[in-house]
């Protein structure tokens, strides 16, 4: 199968007063149609940055330094602004983190959805547009009358579902959802995820789910990618990731998950995430890694492929081999 999405050497920096922060460092990733990838990793590790870069929505002082993002054979990075505007929503859709706050408070939900369609298909009839919006609302389990409502009349969960409805309006090939359910309760989460699942299957779209809820990942995605300080440290199938994570950071992350049988035990990873302005030499995780070796302090580990199509960047598996 040819991947629907190919990311090559994607690099993003933020130019801050304190210096250049490398928020995304030579990221490579392939995704097949219909595949669901979970993107996890420490807060501030660059997950949203990666999504924004794929959408070409990085704003100053940030900049895409290099790389390509190919969706269905087209490298988005090379498109001009107008072409990119059209590609958003129709080729690749992004449901931003905290999207529910970006809904316009003085416009009805319906008007905001219609605007999104108009920007792409200006000659569609009003009735058709309305119908398409209504269907989209229903597919995320909202009543049709939400079309007439204002954002403030909806609870957080309902607003979040409106954002998902807008994201899938034009049936994109790649859907990136940045923490789509972090404000929702488990019952609604399940409904929303099942909805994304169904819509995604119908459209054959690939999905990138960014989030921190490892339970949701275990239940929903096919593959998990773990990010640390702007790099992908491990990409494995969901089963491998949960049963035998290879990268020490991934191992620590899996170990810190709460369950109902270990009450009162909180096992976070000790130490602070590195500053992106001063990423440690060698492996960025080495100051916190319980298995760090000398080579880890000096040499950045390359991403290597291991059995089961796993991609891991760690010296543990190459030293001595």
């Amino acid at each position: 199968m040819t991947p629907i999405l190919q990311i090559r050497d994607l690099q993003v920096s933020y130019y801050t007063d304190l210096g250049r922060a490398t928020a995304l460092n030579r990221v490579n990733l392939d995704l097949n149609p219909g595949e669901k990838l979970g993107l996890v990793g420490e807060s501030g590790s660059g997950k949203s940055t990666m999504a924004l870069a794929m959408m070409r929505m990085i704003k100053a002082p940030g900049r895409i330094e290099s790389g390509s993002v190919t969706v269905g054979g087209v490298d988005l990075i090379t498109l001009n602004d107008e072409e990119m505007r059209l590609a958003r929503l129709s080729r690749i859709a992004y449901i931003p983190q905290g999207a529910m706050n970006s809904l316009n408070p003085v416009l009805r939900i319906g008007a905001q959805m219609v605007d999104a369609i108009k920007a792409h298909i200006p000659n569609m009839s009003q009735a058709d547009m309305t119908e398409q919006c209504m269907q989209s609302l229903e597919s995320v389990d909202l009543k049709r009358n939400v079309f007439q409502m204002y954002a403030h009349e909806l609870s957080g969960g309902m607003k979040q579902r409106v954002c998902i409805a807008i994201g899938i309006l034009l049936k994109p090939q790649v859907i990136i959802a940045d923490e789509p359910t972090s404000a929702l309760d488990v019952v609604t989460q399940r409904q929303v995820m099942e909805t994304i699942d169904r819509v995604q299957k119908e459209m054959g779209a690939a999905v990138i789910l960014i989030g921190h809820d490892m339970g949701l990942m275990a239940q929903f995605v096919d593959k998990v990618a773990v990010m640390y300080a702007g790099r992908l440290t491990e990409v494995s199938t969901v089963r491998d990731m949960f049963s035998k994570p290879m990268h020490p950071y991934a191992q620590a992350l899996i170990k810190s998950l709460p369950n109902l049988s270990n009450k009162g035990v909180f096992q976070g990873i000790a130490g602070l995430a590195p500053s992106l302005l001063r990423i440690p030499n060698g492996c960025a995780f080495h100051p916190r890694c319980p298995q760090a070796m000398d080579v880890c302090k000096t040499t950045v580990p390359d991403v290597k492929e291991y059995e089961g199509n796993r991609l891991v960047a760690c010296h543990l598996y190459t030293e001595g081999a």
Binding site: V40, G41, S43, H212, M214, A252, L253, P258, F266, G268
Partner: peptide
């Protein structure tokens, strides 16, 4: 709700 499992444990 918006932090990873490890930090979640530390903050709680």
């Amino acid at each position: 709700s918006m932090v990873d499992a490890s930090l979640r444990a530390n903050i709680l």
